[in-house]
Amino acid sequence: MSTTTGSSDGATAPGARRPPTAAIHSTEPLPLQPEEVAIHIQDLQFYYDQDAQALWDIDLECPRHRITALIGPSGCGKSTLLRCLNRMNELIDGTRYEGHIFLEGTDLYGTEVDPVALRRHVGMVFQKPNPFPKSVYENVAYGLRLHQKLTKKELDERVQWALEKAHLWDEVKDRLDDAATGLSGGQQQRLCIARALAVEPKVLLMDEPCSALDPVATQKIEDLMLELKKDVTIVIVTHSMSQAARVSDRTAFLYKGKLIEAGPTRQIFEAPREDLTEQYITGRFG
C-alpha cells in the first residue's frame, strides 16, 4: 500500500507479496534523564492525623525549568502534595509524612534543612492574591529585608527587577507607595509573584493562581509563567484542564491521594495510558 494519499503508484508488483505485518510507532514517552530532574518525590505518604492518610506512594519527578501541572478532582491531594514541596503542611498540627522529597539532590525533610530558609528557595503563590497591607514597594521589599542585607539602592534595584519580571513594573512604577490592596486582582496576583521572585527562588509553587482572575488577567499570568520557567522550576495546581494543557510541559493526574499517571502534557491530553486519566480529562467524572 502507498503510505501517501497523493498520486504515487502504491501497487505492489505481482508475486511480490508483502508480509501482513504493520509497524507501530510507540508514543511511549521517554523517561526523564536524572540531570533534568529538579524535584524528585520518592514513595511519599502523607497523613493529616493518625488515621487520615491523604497521599499514598507518590513517586514523581519535576524537570528543571519546566512547568509541571498537578490535576485531579477536588480532594484528590494535589494541593497537599504541592504544600509538601515547601513543608507548608508542617504548620498544621498532627501532620506527618513518610518518604523523601529531593530538591536538587537535597532531602527537603532532612534534619539539617530549616523550613523557613527552604521557603526562600521554594516560593509559593496562592489561589487568592494575598498582598500584605502595605505599599506596593514594601510588599516586594519585605522578604528581601528578611533574608538579605541590601543598601537602599540595591533594594530599589531588586524591587524594580522583581516587578519587571512579574510584568507589573510599567503599571505600578508611578505608584510604588500606594497601598497594594488598591491594585486589581490580576495586578495583586502578579505582585505576589514578584514578591516570591524577589528572593530568587529555585522553585515556584502555584496553587490555582488564576482561579480568582478574569480571562485577561489569567492570560497575563500564563504568559508570565511561560517566561518565568527560564529561571525557575514551576509546579502548578489547576482545576482548568485547558490551562494545564496550555502552559505545562508535564502533567500529573492524582485521584484519591494516589498518582495515577504522569507524563508529557501532550501525551496525557492526547493519548493517556490510564482509563481513569482519560475519564477525568474528558469530563466523564470529577
Binding site: 500500500m1 503510505t3 494519499t5 508483502r18 508480509p19 501482513p20 505485518t21 504493520a22 509497524a23 507501530i24 510507532h25 510507540s26 508514543t27 492526547e270 493519548a271 493517556p272 495510558r273
Partner: peptide
C-alpha cells in the same frame, strides 16, 4: 484510502501510531 482509514482508527483506539506495510 481504506488502509489509511485503518491507520487512523488504530490511533483512535490505542493512541499508538500504526503504519501498514
Amino acid at each position: 484510502n481504506v488502509c489509511k482509514m485503518a491507520e487512523k482508527l488504530h490511533y483512535v483506539a490505542t493512541g499508538e501510531r500504526l503504519l501498514l506495510p
